[in-house]
Design a protein around this nucleic acid. Structure first.
Length: 521
RNA sequence: GGCUCCGUAGCCAAGUGGCUAAGGCAGCGGAUUGCAAAUCCGCCAUCGUCGGUUCGACUCCGACCGGAGCCUCCA
């Protein structure tokens, strides 16, 4: 076995933390259990592809940890009270709660299509107002926060190591202080509680009616569900400062213990060929004071607004999107666009052709094979042969090393080749020797195990099926039979005409030793 | 300006102080096929530029050029 056993009998998995800028073995607060928190969306608009990156990555992290033997509790919060939600609900003439509910549903549907189904809890900020108020009171009692004219602010000068996540000093973070500067002791202080303006949603508090600041939600809710010190805190790289820096300041000031052992940050989605992250704000005029080159660059970035994810799904299969997200290392930016998605989709088809081939040979549907866990896989791997064993070890070693899904996927492409070669060499499409069939089964079970870890191919591809599906199948059967007769009598002109016309119509014929198959392109 | 990070083949993208620098897409040659498709085999990079450290660097250090994120409650 290539994997190293750690003291508690679980595999050794190394994770990079933004806080230490280094990888360290996963050692959990509670042995055998991982508490993982991901900063979720502010639900004011339909989600776009950029919102899917973190969830897909952390879903994969969770799948891999569970596969490897940990118990995992994964929390993704929903910010359902916020300036933007208030503004957008006003525009739409609806309530904040209604809009938030609607957009949360949209978010969840989109996640489900991508196979992100492993979130355990999704706390809403508005369900945790009491928790948040208690948290703020604790900070005030410790002298880390102060009330000011109905607002409450965190006092960064009382936090000796403020800025440790992003290597910033308090001085260097002092901007203008924003519109509330006159209520703050120092410009870098940030709001824990915001006094309600007239007509805004508000909750009663010791400081008067108001609502929570953004940063405090995550500190309070992660504590409520995962405890003051948990294992993995995740989010996009754009949240490192100020959001996560402030979470650390709040939680560690109150609890005097680390908030999270590992701070994992995913790279941001960028539109291929354009500057700027997907969904980012266009860079404004304030940047134009720079040189001409910068101006040229900012011009392009104006087009980075992202379409709703559902629109994207009209053009691309979720499987291709998931693979694209996982084929880049999670800490790197992802180049996203029609072209990369198309390539990703084409690459996926090699897997699906193999699944179809497997079904022809063995009569078994790949999608119904059981996804084993790592221990069971360890026990079963010998039956699949040395090549498979080596590729599985490569896969596991890559995932153990900070979830290197890019290498893991690469090993799966090698895997497909190995299995195809096996079928070729033993002529399994024509004859079916029991011993080789058993080996093939073992190989495919292993592929099922590994693709399942990445959350891939869990469901059969969605057929663009209509009521005509059965009719088309019958017609194709007929066409293929007629063409087969033509081929038998060496009437290749007719046979080729049929095939070419079908190709034009988007149907691909494959003449195999045991007959002709067809598929829609 | 400050703080992070990146620059690998036509495109995308892993990776390592020293054996043949993953994988995908595209392309080329071959096997197979009546011809194709699919499949298999083979080919296709010296790692932004310039210096330095080292027996040896693409991998470490420095400078420069180019790109990205954050410093503005954006995943």
């Amino acid at each position: 076995m290539a994997t190293v056993e750690s003291t508690n009998g679980l595999p050794k998995i190394e994770i990079y933390s933004t806080l230490t800028r280094a990888k360290a073995p996963l050692v959990t607060v509670k042995p055998g259990h991982v508490g993982m928190y991901l900063c979720g969306p502010t639900v004011y608009k339909p989600s776009h592809i950029g919102h899917m990156v973190g969830p897909v990555i952390f879903d994969t992290v969770k799948r891999y940890l569970v596969y490897s033997g940990w118990q995992v509790t994964w929390v993704v919060n929903v910010t359902d009270v916020d300036d933007k939600i208030i503004a957008e609900s006003a525009v739409r003439g609806t309530t904040m709660a209604k809009l938030a509910e609607e957009m949360t549903a949209d978010y969840l549907e989109n996640l489900a299509t991508l196979g992100v189904t492993s979130i355990d809890e999704m706390p809403k900020a508005t369900d945790h107002i009491g928790t948040i108020i208690t948290f703020i009171e604790g900070l005030i009692a410790k002298g880390s926060a102060y009330a000011s004219d109905g607002d409450v602010y965190f006092d960064v000068t009382r936090d000796a190591d403020y800025g440790k996540l992003t290597n910033r000093s308090v001085e260097s973070t002092q901007g203008e202080g924003g519109s509330t500067a006159d209520r703050k002791r120092s410009a870098a202080d940030f709001a824990l509680w915001k006094k309600a303006k007239a007509g805004e949603p508000a909750w009663e508090s010791p400081w008067g009616p108001g609502r929570p600041g953004w940063h405090i939600e995550c500190s309070a809710m992660s504590k409520a569900i995962l405890g003051p010190h948990f294992d993995i805190h995740g989010g996009g790289l754009d949240l490192v400062f100020p959001h996560h820096e402030n979470e650390i300041a709040q939680s560690e000031s109150l609890h005097d213990c680390p908030m999270a052992t590992f701070w994992m940050h995913n790279g941001l989605m960028q539109a291929a060929g354009a500057a700027g992250k997907v969904g980012g704000r266009p860079r404004g005029v304030e940047d134009a004071a720079d040189d001409a080159a910068t101006q040229a660059a900012t011009k392009i970035s104006k087009s980075t607004g992202a379409e709703p994810f559902k629109k994207l799904l009209e053009r691309h299969r979720p499987e291709a999107i998931r693979v694209l997200l996982l084929s880049t290392h999670y800490r790197s930016p992802i180049h996203f666009g029609e072209e990369p998605l198309g390539e990703s989709a084409r690459a996926m088809e090699a897997f699906e052709r193999l699944f179809a081939r497997f079904q022809r040979v063995s009569g078994k549907a790949f999608y119904t094979l059981p996804c084993r866990d790592r221990r069971a896989g360890d026990a079963a791997v010998a039956a699949a042969g040395d090549e498979v064993k080596a590729l599985r070890e490569k896969f596991l070693a890559a995932m153990d090393d900070d979830f290197n899904t890019a290498i893991a996927i690469a090993s799966l492409f090698d895997y497909v080749r190995v299995v195809n070669k096996f079928i070729d060499q033993h002529g399994l499409e024509a004859k079916k020797p029991a011993a080789e069939l058993a080996t093939l089964d073992a190989m495919m079970l292993m592929l099922r195990e590994l693709t399942g870890v990445l959350g891939l191919f869990l469901e059969p591809p969605q057929k663009a099926a209509g009521a005509d599906e059965g009719l088309v199948a019958k017609l194709m059967e007929l066409v293929i039979e007629i063409r087969a007769n033509a081929r038998k009598s060496k009437d290749f002109a007719t046979a080729d005409l049929v095939r070419n016309k079908l190709t034009e119509a988007g149907i691909v014929l494959e003449d195999r030793p045991d007959g002709t198959g067809w598929s829609k392109k």
